[in-house]
Design a protein around this nucleic acid. Structure first.
Lengths: 345, 345
DNA sequence: TTGAAAGCGCTAACAG
DNA sequence: CTGTTAGCGCTTTCAA
């Protein structure tokens, strides 16, 4: 090809060019390209044909300026390497694709300052809505800023208390209770809780549920058995060592998430102990890998794909009707028992 | 607060409002907000203060229309649940955040038709650049369409042969050879290859390297030992059964990726065999979980975080200078030996 | 150092 | 059924 059309087509074909080519107005072109019934079928076809031949590419920025809609949904997460969030993001992206929305992604590694910066940037793209999992220690004002700028927002997985915004997540306390019930029934009376902090809803909810449960079942709540921190493999790995070194070590642990539980299982092996034989460990999330480890990980299933879907649905509903009263949509978790838990030796 | 400013601030504050408030022009406001040296410091400060108090939010769509830059980079992947791509995406997102770019995400599940649709949509957002891992069976025209629309594009991980666009990926053949060398040295003479298709570069490269290696080392290339398919756990799991049922079953397998290898290890266990004892398995990618399985997975490390970073760097370079000659940036993989391989029994 | 004016590419009244 | 016109919010000459 001598590239004659290509040359002019380098991302620079506009409605005007098509209009000129056909001797019609840009309005007609605009309507034709969207297959509006207002325009004659013959005209529509001619316009579409010329658009194609000219290599026309619709310019959403321009349209957005006019319509005040971008068809983008911003997603703010701490971390997408954690498969829990990876899978959650995948569910969201897929659901939104179904309604013609594209995901704009930002991450902030559980750093509230970075979160504010990232959300601020995302906001400037004027997404039609935003799905956010708040950072550890994030303040209500950070999310309110977004909502006050007129962007529908739903919190997913974690929430900021009193922020007055939609939330779709899991019943953390119930999950922790189910895990503790399971261990209690297996005879465990010294149970650690590893991971989570009181500065994120999921951490606070689970740690409080733990405290309450222990008290209600006549077990003392010992600081040494409550290992605070982010839900990483490293935390789990390191925590095991400390716990096993206690004068009176625990026989089981509930973990903030599956990643932490995997770290615990590795730490155990490192000390010549095996989960499900010498020690019981319960995870949380039920990521794909949980079923596949040896032994399989007993874990609290958060139904996170469902959570992602429901967050999208809620957001779309709020986009249609911004006056909706904020709602807390809480999904019941399920305990999945596998090989990593056993009766106390 | 009685919300008087909030009411008008609902995402509707523009430069004009700030200008009116101060009796200056929008030009001055625009310059002030970007801290241009052209404007007096005192003016600048007053403008910025008013902008803040009015709850002004910069409108990137409007700016983009004017500047023809969006500061968005589109990323097109098949699947982000596979931790390999999740980690790759994380590396890309992080790198781009450093240069002030935000990621626009699209996925297409290895479906070339869906890929075309998704890339078409992404294109309309006029991202400043695009990073794409082509779908299985994707044609050159799909990516050329994007590039011809004037959007700088780099292929990552997989490439379409002859498309004449940048590519950042791994030396697939070398990785496969390293895996086979390792198995050969352990005495294996019947080696399967599981996963990958000839319709994606990574699959074709590895399968060809396998064919060549076997021929060069006096082993017959048997169709039954070459299990074609996408790199899923399910494929690995299913393939093992078929392979073990052969009259003369293999003693080892190289897998398309770690996920497939995990599936193989599970399938083995299902047949009362253990990887690293009764059968040897080599993965590819070295995702985080690979080191943590029991036994640890011997795998070909693709350095995918590095790959993501380099893809971004190449893209940024091309954005600065679109005339750059397309380049193939090939990263040397490393074999990581762990417990899933052993000498032939 | 600041303002006026034009225009990026599109859509939405409104008129015809 | 199609054209005219105005304008979304910003940046960028060019003048003053």
């Amino acid at each position: 090809m001598s590239g004659s059309t290509d040359g002019s087509a380098r991302g620079r074909v506009t409605l005007q060019h098509i209009a000129d080519e056909l001797g019609v107005s840009t309005a007609t072109v605009s309507l034709s390209l969207r297959s509006s019934p207002l325009v004659a079928a013959a005209t529509r076809d001619r316009v579409q044909a010329v658009a194609r031949s000219l290599g026309y590419v619709y310019n959403r920025s321009a349209a957005s300026l006019r319509t005040a809609r971008t068809n983008m949904i911003a997603v703010g997460f701490n971390d997408i390497v954690n498969p829990y969030f990876g899978e959650l993001l995948a569910a969201i992206e897929e659901t939104l694709a179904g309604s013609g929305h594209t995901v704009l992604l930002g991450t902030y590694s559980d750093d509230p300052v970075k979160q504010d910066r990232v959300l601020g940037t995302l906001k400037e793209y004027r997404p039609d809505g935003m799905i956010v999992c708040p950072a550890n220690g994030a303040r209500a004002a950070s999310l309110r800023d977004v909502a006050d700028a007129g962007i529908p927002l739903v919190q997913v997985s974690r929430e900021i208390s009193g922020v007055g915004l939609d939330f779709v997540g899991s019943n953390d306390a119930l999950g922790t209770e189910a895990a503790l019930d399971h261990l209690f029934a297996l005879g465990h009376r010294r149970i650690a809780i590893i991971g989570g902090t009181d500065a994120m809803s999921t951490g606070a909810n689970r740690r409080n549920a733990y405290r309450t449960y222990l008290a209600a079942h006549g077990m003392a709540v010992e600081a040494a058995l409550m290992v605070e921190g982010f839900g990483t493999r490293d935390l789990g790995f390191a925590a095991v060592h400390g716990l096993l070194d206690l004068t009176s070590p625990p026989t089981a642990a509930v973990c903030f998430n599956d990643l932490t539980a995997f770290g615990v299982m590795l730490g155990l092996r490192h000390r010549n102990r095996e989960a499900g034989r010498d020690f019981s460990v319960v995870g949380c999330d039920d990521v794909k890998e949980a079923a596949l480890w040896a032994p399989g990980l007993t874990t609290v299933k958060n139904h996170h794909a469902d959570m992602g879907r429901r967050a999208c649905e809620r957001l779309l509903a709020r986009m249609v009707n911004p006056a909706l009263t904020p709602e807390r949509i809480v999904i019941e978790p399920t305990l999945v028992v596998r090989g990593s838990t056993t009766s106390v030796g």
